[in-house]
């Protein structure tokens, strides 16, 4: 596999950047139908990851995802902290003893997303980050099944993430705080879906550049 944990510092850096750049917009989303803390929450986690990124770069994926998961779990708080924590810890578990290729990664990521579904007692269509994560997992599996080239697969992932994020706009929220707004939750993109998409697109960007960069 082309991608090693050595990439993590730069991945964390672009995630930090995209959340920072879009902070105001996302906060406005979370204030509209949530409680406004989602960006602050994520940024607490990202800051903790930045502090660890040197160490993370030296680990294998199993250990790195475990560490990322525990860091998100203990630094973020709120709904998103437990969910991202769950995602990475589950990915770490699923990655044990397996060489990483697109097929395997698709399975690992799917395991992570399944754990998020369980933890959140939620599924697609409830106006949460899962409306990004579930289709992205599906897109990865599809790419692996179709053996598409990695750059194409990445491009599909980004498109899927954006579509998933957009799809939350007209949904009725049935999970998370937004559910208490009932019909008033419609018309606003879910903050967690937005940040999932932003982070995924940022990752895709770095990975795609990495693929085309001279070795």
């Amino acid at each position: 596999m082309q991608f090693a944990p050595a990439l993590l510092p730069s991945l964390i850096q672009v995630i930090d950047k995209t959340i920072e750049t879009n902070a105001e917009e996302v906060t406005a989303l979370d204030q509209a139908i949530g409680d406004g803390d989602h960006v602050t929450n994520l940024q607490r986690g990202i800051k903790a990851l930045i502090a660890q990124s040197g160490e993370l770069a030296t680990l294998d994926w199993v250990a790195a995802w475990q560490k990322i998961g525990m860091t998100m779990m203990t630094a973020v708080g709120g709904a998103s902290g437990s969910l991202y924590g769950t995602l990475f810890v589950a990915m770490s578990k699923a990655a044990r003893e397996r060489p990483l290729d697109l097929q395997v990664f698709a399975e690992i990521f799917t395991s992570g997303v399944d754990a998020v579904k369980q933890r959140g007692k939620a599924d697609a269509g409830e106006k949460t980050m899962l409306d990004v994560l579930i289709p992205v997992a599906a897109s990865l599996r599809q790419a692996a099944a179709d053996s598409v080239a990695l750059p194409v697969a990445l491009d599909n992932v980004a498109r899927t993430a954006i579509a998933g994020m957009e799809s939350t706009r007209d949904m009725l929220a049935t999970k998370g705080r937004a559910s208490f707004l009932e019909e008033r939750s419609r018309g606003h993109i879910d903050a967690g879906a937005k940040t999932s998409q932003l982070m995924i697109c940022a990752l895709v960007d770095v990975l795609a550049k990495h693929l085309t960069a001279p070795a």
Binding site: D37, M73, V76, G81, G85
Partner: peptide, 11 residues
């Protein structure tokens, strides 16, 4: 105690 309006963490 968690951060303001943010649930505390499992640890």
């Amino acid at each position: 105690p968690g951060q303001v309006f943010t649930s505390p963490t499992p640890d």
